[in-house]
Amino acid sequence: MENAYGTLSGPNITIRELQKDKISFILSDTDLSVANSLRRVMIAEVPTIAIDMVEIETNTTVLADEFIAHRLGMIPIESTDVERIKYTRDCTCSQYCSECSVELTLHVKCTDDRTRDVTSRELISSNPQFQPVLTDKNDSGILIVKLRKGHELSIKCIAKKGVAKEHAKWSPVSGVAFEYDPYNKLRHTHYWIEEDEKKEWPLSKNAALEAPPDPNAPFDYNAKPDRFYFSSETVGSLQPEEVVSMAMKTLLDKLAYVQMQLKEEVDMKKQDHTSWGY
């Protein structure tokens, strides 16, 4: 059922690899713009939970308050149930409440004569669904600060829902690799070469998934990209497949919102017309 605009059956996803913090899949039978939108949403608009406010009660460590607050913000927090938390701006409360935030506390004092590491393990969450990410039991957590004898750190953190558009700490992924047309059949790029293209430019891994082009085949200037090779690594706050599905949902929501807006506009215009009595 192929025509110039791809298959009519709609976009497909083939998962090639799925690990705890990695996913690699092929998005096919769709347009470049859709694929790129997915990539952009994965990076910037999938909501997660991250520490946003830090109330510092005691800080006698070597690091400054803002320094520690910044470090805390970067700690990924398990956000599978992020849907249950509202954005603070949508919440009825004045500053924050349990509906729109998670409270994490940390209180460490070093009493020994040796350096004590304070890690994300020591953050105690008020809501068990939203814990700092640990890869496994042996994971010592993310280092926040080191203490010497007499140093104390006592803080209350407010974690909130947000998106990476606002701050990179809310990004669920550390990067999204994205490629199409590994053989450059579409000639979207120009190889810079000294002598020989094949020698100088190593093919990407994704080239194994496509048939090498026939060197004698004429250039098809109507061809459009339709297979997109994605791979992404998460920071741990969300499962990789969740990131993809939530990204799609976010895209859908956005489109639905546009649709709604459109409808409203149309209705408005119609009302205007009727009221003028044409």
Partner: peptide, 25 residues
């Protein structure tokens, strides 16, 4: 080269805005 990169230090780069590869390396 051993790590699968071009010897010249140039990389294949895609535009974040359009999703199309840049025409230059």
């Amino acid at each position: 080269i051993e790590n699968g990169f071009s010897y010249s230090g140039k990389d294949y780069v895609t535009s974040g805005i359009t999703g199309e590869p840049l025409s230059a390396y």
